[in-house]
Design a protein around this nucleic acid. Sequence first.
DNA 1: CAATAATGTTCAATCTACTGGACGTGAAAT
DNA 2: ATTTCACGTCCAGTAGATTGAACATTATTG
Lengths: 110, 110
Amino acid sequence: MKRKRTYARRTRQALSIMGKLIRIGRMERGMTAQELADRAGISRTTLHNIEKGAPGVEIGTVFEAASLAGVPLFENDETALSAENARLAEKLTLLPKSVRTSRTEVDDDF
Amino acid sequence: MKRKRTYARRTRQALSIMGKLIRIGRMERGMTAQELADRAGISRTTLHNIEKGAPGVEIGTVFEAASLAGVPLFENDETALSAENARLAEKLTLLPKSVRTSRTEVDDDF
DNA sequence: CAATAATGTTCAATCTACTGGACGTGAAAT
DNA sequence: ATTTCACGTCCAGTAGATTGAACATTATTG
């Protein structure tokens, strides 16, 4: 079963901020909720939930709405999106393929 | 009906980056997928989808996993989370409550 | 103030993500 | 080399998100 979830305060804060950023971005661009919803391919109800910071919304729709509302996702960083993506992909190859906890206690437990 | 969605390249990039950041953060902290999934209160399958950048996952679970993996959500900014949230809330009150497109064409159509 | 439009909110039907279990694969430790 | 376990993947059942329409409630324009 898909039990009811609990979210850390940090998570709820981030969700709330994301929603506000989208709403602000939308209004500053003079778009109505219906307009943005249409562009994002979602219902106005869902957009309303997004701007409210609801945790159950699909992340793809949230990011899409954010993008259309002019909210920078990772572009605030120095690197462009594709470049950053490539950089992370390379970084991943340098990491071990799987995480194994050594049975013999190492000295990182304090 | 909830038709199949399309996402802008920008959105897909952001999703991919988010997934990679979580995976990298998890591994750097020496956590197995099962461990992080347990802490986030989700199944390992869902975490796998998250790290893959799947757009259909609930944003709350993604943000929760990110938080637990040490991925900064909006904390990379100068302001703390709650302060930023308050700042945005105030900014919202300063904006008009609703967006109305004036019937008399204003000079913003070129 | 009146008219109009945007936003807030509810709801049943429908679509889909989530789960937990299973199995196979491959990598890391002994 | 062998063992162990993390990871990748599939699946049916189930809980829950999405929708679209309706209606209520503001807010803005004239």
